[in-house]
Simulated scan of single mutants.
Amino acid sequence: MFIRAYLRASTKEQDANRAKDELIAFAREYGHKIAAFYTENESGAKLERPQLMQLIDDASDGDVILVEQIDRLARLNQADWDTLKRKLSAKRLSVVSKELPTSYMALQQGNSSEFMESVLRAINDMLLDMLAAIARKDYEDRRNRQMQGIARAKAQGKYKGRGKDMEKRKIIASLLKSGHSYSDIQQTVKCSRQLIAEVSKASKPISSSI
């Protein structure tokens, strides 16, 4: 059995590795080491996340996926959550979350009877579904509040949209001036090629015709 930790944050501004040391300590409490970490900055409302899919591809039958909370794994709608569960079930992968004590049984092999393990597994599956549903509802509630706030701001003429990250643009402009390639800048600044192109275009002097 290998333990594979999955760490996720929704945006590039957030630290997806925030809970890494906490998960290492948690696994150590049960006499285990984490074999691999899969980290990404992607929305939990998306099913097709590169690192999550890579984790499932890499995993062998019976491996454990360790997460800080279920919402780190998914904020999926019901159809996508069912799809993810089928992917996990196909390899008999167990999800262990610090917020779900009944999931710890995956780390305690041989400590209970087959009957008790079956009972705990059924309870854990039910709680896992419940926490996934709560995570999705929390995501939808926050989205709705955000949209309502935007609608009110627009009605009052106060909505300006998301402001430009001027500090990031200054860094991109400096790297462009130094001759760095788009790929180098993407890797360094963690931004899109579109943004680099915008900064490049804005930095070019406007030619005047006589």
Rank of each mutant, 00 (worst) to 15 (best):
R49E: 00
M130H: 12
K154W: 08
I56P: 00
A153Y: 13
L120D: 06
D141S: 15
L88N: 00
V64Y: 03
G149N: 01
V64E: 03
R136M: 00
P101N: 11
E114F: 13
R145A: 15
L76W: 02
D141N: 08
K158I: 06
L55S: 01
N144D: 15
S103Y: 04
K160Q: 11
E114V: 13
T102E: 11
M53D: 04
T83I: 10
I172F: 05
A90Q: 08
K177Y: 12
Q78P: 07
L88A: 03
M126W: 13
L128K: 02
Q54I: 06
I171M: 11
G179D: 09
A173R: 05
M130A: 13
D125W: 02
I123S: 09
Q69I: 09
R121A: 10
M166R: 13
D58F: 07
V96E: 01
Q148F: 15
F115H: 11
R169H: 09
N111Q: 12
Q54P: 02
I134M: 12
Q78N: 14
R162T: 09
A45V: 00
S97N: 06
K87W: 09
F115G: 11
L131T: 01
E167H: 03
S113I: 04
R142A: 07
S181C: 06
Q148S: 15
L107D: 04
S118F: 09
A151F: 05
L127N: 01
R136G: 07
A173D: 00
I171D: 11
P101D: 06
G62N: 09
A106D: 06
K98F: 11
H180K: 15
N124Q: 06
G179T: 07
Y159L: 08
S112H: 11
R152N: 15
I65M: 05
L175A: 05
F115V: 10
D63K: 03
K160S: 13
V96G: 05
E99N: 12
N111Y: 13
A45Y: 00
I134R: 14
L73C: 03
D129S: 03
E117F: 11
Y104E: 10
L128P: 02
S60I: 12
K87R: 12
L175C: 10
S60N: 14
A79M: 14
L127E: 08
G179A: 05
I172T: 02
